[in-house]
Design a protein around this nucleic acid. Sequence first.
DNA 1: TTAATAAAAGATAAAAAGGTATTTTATTAT
DNA 2: ATAATAAAATACCTTTTTATCTTTTATTAA
Lengths: 144, 144
Amino acid sequence: MFSQSCKYAIRAMFLIAQKSVEGKYTGIKDISEGLDAPQHFIAKILQELTKKGFLTSAKGPNGGFLVNQEQQKTTLLEIVYAFDGDKIITSCCLGLKDCSEKNPCPVHEEYKGIRKKMSHMLSNTLVSDYNDELGLRKLFLKVV
Amino acid sequence: MFSQSCKYAIRAMFLIAQKSVEGKYTGIKDISEGLDAPQHFIAKILQELTKKGFLTSAKGPNGGFLVNQEQQKTTLLEIVYAFDGDKIITSCCLGLKDCSEKNPCPVHEEYKGIRKKMSHMLSNTLVSDYNDELGLRKLFLKVV
DNA sequence: TTAATAAAAGATAAAAAGGTATTTTATTAT
DNA sequence: ATAATAAAATACCTTTTTATCTTTTATTAA
């Protein structure tokens, strides 16, 4: 479905978005522990998220990563596009190079519905949408 | 979504199922051309499908692969399970090792619906379901 | 019974994804 | 100024997936 990098990216954004409510930067170590994910790998992903403008970073003591007000409005679709491209939305599930109404694969029609649901979920979810539930530990970003 | 091997496997099963209506074996060369896929890679996949009982094979002149009456009833889900395991149905879309009602990720609830649709499509589609449309060139297994 | 055919098997290689380690640069607090 | 902190950058390594190539085995038809 999503690449490992993309999954970590989404989870990291949810986590940092929630932590950012208090206005403080969160360090890589806290983030990788909060996601139960390899620290150096996460570091690389956070750099990409920063470069693409989804995160704000600060070096030095008290530094780390932050999701500012504007960045809280990032959708999951934007993150997925940045890491995995548009294949989740556009590509044929049986791998045809150009599967369309004119050249449909056997499951083309039925897969449309699945793609639509996925697309809807990704474009309608903001990284801020679960800040409260995550804070209240009703939702999780790792197995506890 | 599915691995490349799995996509080729499903397309190969659709193709051989349709060709098998005439009762003749179809050779690897015809199959790889019919799918626009690398011949040796397809060969390996067909061997796996044969070993797992989804296909019948015959060596020598007039040999090749065939989907018999019983094998025509194979579902896409069986093929997917054989190549990619059950992760498409069971695993968390954000990569949590154990995402469940007790430890749900932020998109757990919404993803359920997508998973259900996918599961329904895979378990309700037989490799024989599109024999007619494929024969009439209303559906395709490669870009024409 | 032999030559042609075609799948089966095995070895290898190329590419992509996932992950680790080290060094460099910038910031802050003392 | 300087020592500590933490992200940025770079290089490298491992595993998995995808793909190719070669040899072997089985079958059939002449």
